[in-house]
């Protein structure tokens, strides 16, 4: 399960995300370093699915002026 999730996140990071950049015509979308997807992958690896995804989601939501987290 964890492996599957990590695979999905990696696919997003290296295929979906660049494709979105191509479609929208921007070279970089994420302002974080490491990027949200990299961070989520790290968190899921270290802390498991539930905690990792929770932290990743929190990270995505803390982006933008409408900080939710």
């Amino acid at each position: 399960m964890k492996k599957l999730l990590l695979m999905a996140l990696t696919i997003y990071k290296i295929i979906v995300s660049p494709l979105l950049h191509q479609l929208l015509g921007v070279s970089r979308g994420c302002r974080f370093n490491p990027s949200c997807s990299e961070y989520t992958i790290m968190m899921v690896e270290d802390h498991g699915i539930v905690k990792g995804m929770k932290r990743g989601l929190k990270r995505v939501l803390s982006c933008s002026q409408f900080s939710f987290a």
Binding site: L20, L24, V26, G29, C30, R31, C36, V60, C63, S64, Q65, F66
Partner: peptide, 12 residues
């Protein structure tokens, strides 16, 4: 840093 990814997501 407030620019964020929101403007991107809204366009989709």
């Amino acid at each position: 840093p407030a620019a964020g990814c929101l403007p991107l997501i809204i366009q989709l």
